[in-house]
Every structure is written in structure tokens, then in C-alpha cells.
């Protein structure tokens, strides 16, 4: 099934021969997920403009054009009362979560700018480095001209 879905996305199966596939993508949860995964991978590998350098710019522009919901709770409770409508979350999930995290980053960033740096006479005690902090090692590895570190499972995966 998944091979067929992949083939359909790659235009290896004609759309008019694939009615059964499209039906299963619509009805079968697993097939539906496979469909979105293949599209996501395809977009990423083709270097889709969505993930390009203008990503943030485009996102911010999109956010600007979006209506501001000042009371999301009210919208949600109103939503619950009308059961026939798909949930609010399902309608625009991506822009909501992205908008929220973007706002969070902006707030944190603003707080950081307003933080003061340590002055000479109130320096915290110096920590003697025992290991190479992973965040610097990762940053180094991802930016140097030559990389051999992709081969080893690097330190970066805390999950």
C-alpha cells in the first residue's frame, strides 16, 4: 500500500488508475499518514521554498494577514457548542502552533535583550569545563567546511 502511495506521488501511477488509493488515503488513517509523510519528505528533499531562508519572513507575512482572535477560549467554547463543525484545532493547526511558538520566542528574546550582562565585580564563580558542551560542539560541526561527524551518532540527541 505504501509503495503504491509513494508511486502515486511520484507520478508513477496515473491518477485515474488510483481511485482505490485515493479512497484509502481518505478513509484509512495509516494510509493518510503515509500520504502526508511522503509529501513532507518530498518537499524537504526538493528544497521546497517553504523551508528556505525566507521561511520566517513568509511566516510573519502570513501571520499579519491572519485575523487576530483576541479570545481563543471564547472561540473554542463556541466551537464546542456547534458539533457539526470540525474543531478549530483541525482547521488551522499549523499556523496556530507556529504562531504561538513564534510569539513565545519573541517574548523570550525581548526579555533577554532587557537582561543585564554580568559586570566585573559580580561575576558568578567560574565553572571548570569537564566536557565539551554539546551545544557548541554541534554548532561547530554544522558550520565547518568539512564534516565527518554525520557518520557517528552525535551527542546532540537528548530526546
Amino acid at each position: 500500500m505504501n509503495e503504491q502511495i509513494s508511486a502515486l506521488i511520484d507520478d508513477e501511477i496515473a491518477v485515474h488508475d488510483a481511485a482505490h488509493l485515493i479512497t484509502s488515503v481518505q478513509s484509512n488513517k495509516q494510509a493518510n499518514e503515509a500520504w502526508s509523510h511522503y509529501h513532507l519528505i518530498g518537499d524537504a528533499m526538493r528544497g521546497s521554498t517553504i523551508f528556505g531562508p525566507e521561511f520566517k519572513h513568509n511566516l510573519m507575512r502570513k501571520l499579519d494577514t491572519e485575523a487576530t482572535v483576541l479570545s481563543p477560549n471564547a472561540a473554542l467554547s463556541a466551537d464546542k457548542s456547534v458539533n457539526s463543525r470540525p474543531t478549530f484545532k483541525n482547521q488551522i493547526p499549523a499556523s496556530w502552533s507556529i504562531a504561538a511558538s513564534c510569539a513565545a520566542v519573541m517574548v523570550v528574546g525581548w526579555m533577554a535583550i532587557n537582561q543585564q550582562t554580568q559586570t566585573g565585580n559580580e561575576l558568578a564563580p567560574v565553572e571548570v569545563a569537564q566536557t565539551i558542551p554539546a551545544e557548541y560542539l554541534m554548532a561547530h560541526q554544522s558550520s565547518v567546511p568539512t564534516a565527518s561527524t554525520y557518520y557517528i551518532q552525535s551527542v546532540n540527541y537528548s530526546e
Binding site: 537582561q115 550582562t117 554580568q118 561575576l123 558568578a124 565539551i132 557548541y136 561547530h140 565547518v144 568539512t146
Partner: peptide, 29 residues
């Protein structure tokens, strides 16, 4: 052939300053 990364950041309150040197595998710090 060889590459070195230099990181510079202001020491914000609450961040512990680090000091020292270390060699781990092929990487010096």
C-alpha cells in the same frame, strides 16, 4: 583542511562562566 570555531557571547546573569581546556577524541576545546 582543519577548522576552528570561535564563539563569543556576553555573560548574562545566571549563566555560569566556563574556563579550561579539554581534548575529547579529535576535538580540542
Amino acid at each position: 583542511l582543519a577548522s576552528v570555531s570561535l564563539f563569543i557571547e556576553p555573560l548574562l546573569k545566571g549563566i555560569k562562566p566556563k574556563s579550561g581546556h579539554k581534548l575529547v577524541g579529535t576535538t580540542s576545546f
